[in-house]
């Protein structure tokens, strides 16, 4: 049986240095992170400046407009302050996810530490910007208006818990989706090779998991985009709390 977990292994390519006694290695994950950055940079740079855009330029401008509209609709025009951050997040996750679908590649976002770091970046941005912009009024975030005084303490507790569980739900959602998708793909694909090794009947039987693998790849393409979008829109909603606390 082919190990469906093998694709998530990190392989050291070289050592960057040490922090304390901890070795900091350049791994396959690092390579794919840099690949995503290079792909995004090349894509954005290579786009033409034509008045009437071609396909490639259209794609780049579409991604620009898409993220800009997502921010404007969920965080208001003031949210455009965070346009570079949100755009970087969306493109990084989206490109990593898409690259990860290609067989034999590594999926950066299938590691909880990566998605958690990105979610924590958003979480800390919200807290720091929220206090910087609103001062102590930022605490209004935990006190919804129009709530009877009797149940207000309960609501405040719930709000605080939900606020602090945000980075966890934010990161686990992306990580779990990518991980589960890739495991499923690998399991079905390994059925194909396993059945294919069993002679003619096995080869015929292998058609079913092969078809499923193709279908799942299509589904994973959608999930790759959808999870990047979900991460982005949640980022916008959280940033909206920092910009306009007190809902």
């Amino acid at each position: 049986m082919i190990d469906p977990i093998h694709q998530f292994h990190l392989n050291k390519i070289f050592t960057i240095g040490h922090i304390g006694n901890q070795e900091i290695a350049f791994t396959n994950s690092s390579a794919y992170m840099l690949l995503a950055v290079v792909l995004i940079a090349v894509m954005m740079m290579a786009a033409g400046r034509a008045l009437v855009p071609g396909r490639f330029q259209s794609m780049v401008e579409l991604s620009y407009e898409f993220v800009a509209n997502t921010i404007r609709t969920s965080a208001g025009s003031h949210g455009m302050t965070f346009f570079p951050l949100v755009f970087s997040l969306f493109m990084f996750i989206f490109v990593s996810n898409i690259v990860g679908i290609i067989p034999y590649t590594f999926t950066v976002s299938s590691h909880i530490i990566v998605t958690f770091a990105l979610a924590l970046l958003v979480f800390l941005t919200v807290i720091i910007y929220g206090f910087y912009k609103n001062g102590l009024k930022f605490f209004k975030l935990f006190v919804p208006s129009g709530i009877p005084a009797v149940i207000l303490p309960l609501v405040v507790v719930i709000e605080i818990i939900s606020f602090f569980s945000r980075p966890i739900s934010h990161s686990v959602r992306l990580f779990a989706n990518m991980l589960a998708g890739h495991v499923t793909l690998k399991v079905f694909a390994s059925f194909v090779t396993m059945l294919g090794a069993l002679g003619f009947v096995g080869k015929v039987g292998a058609l079913l998991p092969l078809g499923l693998t193709v279908a799942l790849t299509g589904l994973e393409l959608m999930v790759a985009f959808l999870q990047a979008y979900v991460f982005t829109i949640l980022t916008c909603i959280y940033l909206n709390d920092a910009i306009h606390p007190g809902h």
């Binding site: 960057i16 070795e23 690092s30 992170m33 950066v108 590691h111 770091a117």
Partner: peptide, 10 residues
């Protein structure tokens, strides 16, 4: 290692 790589890349 992943955090360092991610910070550099991001």
């Amino acid at each position: 290692s992943q955090i360092v790589s991610l910070v550099i890349a991001f």
